[in-house]
Design a protein around this nucleic acid. Structure first.
Lengths: 134, 134
DNA sequence: CAGTATCCTCCAAGATACTG
DNA sequence: CAGTATCTTGGAGGATACTG
């Protein structure tokens, strides 16, 4: 039984507020934005994939972490798991409608960051050299 | 000297690709989407704040983690630190234009997740009860 | 106030081996 | 192929004390 802890932003009448420690939305946000969660959703944004296809797309993920990540996303209703009871087994993963909507916003963020990496790297050099000369 | 490792998506001619293990964009994405990075940017989206004001807004963050997070975001050029050399010291943090653009996309994601938490919680109950009955 | 310094704990995540 | 099980460890992150 999950009780929703007090986490509403009283003034604005928002039921869920990620800035509250106890709010379950913080957990879901972490599934979505966590290192492997974000990359897995990103991979699934391009279509439906089998377990090992996903592993190859998400460079560096281990079997364990991919499995764990997929379970969390499935539990949150963002990913659908389609298993054929054949031998050898075939399992396909794809985004649910909710997952697609979430991932759309995530990809907007990812693509924007990718597109501005030159600015980021320049800022880093400025920051580092300002520190080196002290 | 930072050399940009090979991380471009060759076909699409994108210079940076977060799905490559070695690409620096993956690091920046983690600063932005990490637990404390996301919440700190979210807090700064509402304006300029002092260190301890931020601490209070980001429920649960420790001094150490907030300090560390702000440094990373400042280094990436997303946050500007304005220090007055008074006594007692006064330091204000605010988003840079780049930080604001990134945070806009982040907030779109956060608000969407917050708004669909009822669906997420319902999905969890379905998932859990389907597992309990086996 | 705005942090840094230190110590310590615990768990996310990697490595490896195994299974239906 | 699509995972689970077990073991281990680096490092994220908390607690506490201290400083300009």
């Amino acid at each position: 039984m999950t009780t929703v802890e007090e986490c509403s932003a009283a003034e604005q009448e928002l039921p869920y507020n990620v800035f509250s420690r106890a709010c379950p939305s913080r957990g879901t946000l972490e599934h979505v934005t966590g290192r492997w969660g974000a990359l897995t959703l990103g991979a699934l944004h391009e279509g439906s994939f089998r377990f090992n296809e996903l592993r190859r797309r998400v460079d560096g993920v281990s079997e364990k972490m991919l499995s764990q990540t997929l379970h969390a996303l499935e539990r949150d209703g963002l990913v659908h798991r389609e298993a054929q009871p054949t031998n050898p087994p075939r399992v396909d993963y794809e985004l649910t409608p909710l997952g697609r909507a979430v991932t759309e916003r995530l990809m907007s963020l990812i693509h924007f960051v990718e597109g501005r990496m030159d600015d980021v790297l320049a800022a880093r050099e400025r920051y580092d050299s300002a520190r080196a000369s002290r």
